[in-house]
Write a protein that binds this DNA or RNA. Structure first.
Length: 279
DNA sequence: CCTTGAACCTGCGGGC
DNA sequence: TGCCCGCAGGTTCAAG
């Protein structure tokens, strides 16, 4: 489900619901997600106050006052749903966190690509899952100079390069296509072939697309919802993603000649682009 | 070192 | 209606 804007949205919604609270019960209904859930470590968090939440890349970090942190990744289909604890549990609700006031958080993940671990807060960024991650896209470290240097010797397609979480985090399949469209760069181009000017435009486009998506609560494909049940609305603002055969929003060109937005496959994932605008 | 492709798992929609 | 296929927002690991 989630790229950075969706994870950021879920994280903010969840923090409002649970900051300062305590989980009185944590139920594991099945433990075989991406890797086995740490059952005992989760049980040990019952009764501990929640200090706050953070996002790192596409991970949600839930910090407790005993110095432990839950590290959670939603994979492709994961959702965190907040409710009042009265409704029936649903299929694929794998972990259920309950607060004393009845508030309940359900970690629902049909495909079970999601992950959850518990580790010491102080060393969380040295955790196996986090230590190899690249820079945050909104940090000062993510800039044209840095990205240009990192891309220079790469022969991979630029679309695949910006989705590489070891380079810059948070950009997934939707926002890669959208950012390349916005910066006018052909997704098939070799990463190393981009000029410094291209890279500057790309950095700005990645930041702008992510910012605009966050402002709209992310994108709701299929059944994705924010933690409070609201739907994100950025899918209505897609310029190219999932719009094969439709008109490019920026091209005044003859639609019949270009065929509009094209779909192709890169690295096993769909890429959407306008061959006229993106060079 | 690199790049590519498959694997992980379930659900949905389209075509027949 | 049922079945089969391709597709889906991510990450990791093996093979070349």
């Amino acid at each position: 489900m989630p790229e950075l804007p969706e994870v950021e949205t879920v994280c903010r919604g969840l923090e409002k619901a649970v900051k300062g609270k305590v989980f009185t019960d944590i139920t594991l209904r099945r433990t075989d997600l991406r890797f086995p859930l740490p059952k005992q470590k989760l049980q040990n968090l019952c009764g501990q106050s929640i200090l706050g939440l953070e996002r790192r890349a596409k991970y949600i970090l839930i910090n407790f006052d005993n110095g432990k942190t839950i590290l959670l990744h939603l994979g492709m289909s994961g959702r965190l749903v907040i409710d009042d604890g009265k409704a029936e549990l649903e299929k694929h609700d794998h972990v259920v966190f309950c607060c004393s006031n009845g508030t309940r958080i359900r970690f629902n993940d049909a495909r079970r690509f999601g992950m959850l671990d518990v580790a010491p807060t102080a060393a969380i960024h040295q955790h196996k899952l986090l230590k190899k991650l690249g820079v945050e896209p909104f940090s000062a470290d993510f800039n044209a100079k840095m990205l240009h240097e990192k891309l220079q010797h790469k022969t991979a397609a630029i679309k695949l390069a910006i989705m590489d979480q070891a380079l810059v985090v948070g950009v997934g399949n939707i926002y890669a296509s959208e950012a390349l469209f916005q910066s006018g760069i052909d997704p098939r181009r070799t990463a190393g072939s981009l000029s410094r000017k291209n890279v500057a435009a790309l950095v700005a486009a990645i930041q702008d697309v992510l910012r605009r998506a966050i402002a709209k609560g992310g994108s709701s494909l299929r059944d994705y919802k924010q933690a409070d049940g609201e739907l994100g609305t950025f899918q209505h603002a897609f310029a190219v993603y999932d719009r094969a055969g439709l008109r490019c929003p920026d091209c005044a060109c003859d639609f019949s000649k270009t065929g509009g937005i094209q779909r192709m496959v890169q690295g096993g994932r769909s890429t959407f682009f306008c061959a006229r605008k993106q060079r």
